[in-house]
């Protein structure tokens, strides 16, 4: 592709980087990324990917903007309260970078639609706030051979892992969701708003590294941080031969909608 004068200006700081350059920026501009969840993590992920010029961004979220979201979901503004989150996010992305094509799905990501939606994308980003959908994203991506970024935040903590076919998946580390109610969601337990920005931005960087080939991905490494001590650590992990979805004798061969704790289901 030939960049026009505006694009050369817009992406100049990427073009200057040896590890991105013109070729890397072209790859970014041709990339198609699905973001599951347009909330705390999805907001910074969508903003940075849009700013970077990702060609197509898919957004799936069944929720509408609530006043209590605005403390961390920075892509939504006060006047967006009650608007579908995917619509609010689409409007901001288009204002930030009109080059980006945005496709919205105002619905839940479920076992029924997962394969059909992810098939149109090169990379999937988990920006969800609950275990059932995190496991669903993992299983759908592993079974479809699709790379994805897992991310989770709670209180002052965040963790993320990048998956490419052949590397450790989320289920290699965590076999099954915790029982409903065992681990609170951030809507119950609270979360420092800036944590969403910290983790979502790391996930966005992983996406850009994936497409440009720059550096080493967080594959076979789980990054976790605590913002109170501000300590980051990476834990080396390996594909698990007993993994229920990618191991030698998989028991998960179709998609599962796990039960959510009642208080997680809004209205």
């Amino acid at each position: 592709m030939d960049f026009n004068e505006e694009q050369i200006q817009r992406y100049s700081r990427h073009i200057l980087l040896q590890d991105v350059g013109v070729e890397g920026q072209e790859k970014i501009c041709n990339a198609r990324v699905l973001i599951v969840g347009a909330g705390g993590l999805g907001a910074p992920i969508a903003f940075y990917l849009a700013a970077a010029g990702i060609g197509t961004i898919g957004l799936i979220d069944g929720d509408t903007v609530d006043l209590s979201n605005l403390q961390r979901q920075i892509i939504h503004f006060t006047e967006d309260v009650n608007k579908p989150k995917v619509l609010s996010a689409k409007e901001k992305i288009e204002r930030l970078n009109p080059d980006v094509k945005v496709i919205t799905y105002h619905k839940l990501f479920t076992s029924e639609n997962a394969f059909d939606i992810i098939k149109d994308y090169d990379f999937v980003v988990d920006g969800t706030d609950n275990f059932p959908v995190k496991f669903l994203i993992n299983d759908a991506c592993v079974l479809a051979g699709k790379p994805f970024s897992h991310g989770g935040i709670l209180r002052f903590d965040g963790q993320t892992l990048t998956y490419k076919p052949g590397t450790a998946c989320y289920r290699c580390l965590f076999h099954a969701p915790p029982p409903p109610g065992a681990v609170p969601t951030c809507s119950q337990a609270g979360v420092l708003g800036a944590i969403a920005g910290m983790l979502g931005t790391i996930q966005a960087a992983e996406v850009l590294k994936y497409f440009t080939g720059a550096g080493d991905l967080l594959t076979n490494r789980l990054l976790s941080f605590n913002a109170k001590s501000m300590e980051f650590r990476t834990i080396n992990v390996h594909p698990n031969s007993n993994c229920p979805v990618c191991g030698k004798h998989p028991t998960v061969t179709t998609l599962i909608d796990y039960e959510q704790a009642v208080c997680e289901i809004k209205r």
Binding site: F3, I8, Q9, S12, R13, I15, L16, G21, V22, E23
Partner: peptide
């Protein structure tokens, strides 16, 4: 600067 090197890289890429 830095558009000088940006333009150089754009041409070199071709």
């Amino acid at each position: 600067c830095p558009m000088t090197f940006v333009k150089t890289k754009i041409e070199l890429a071709k």
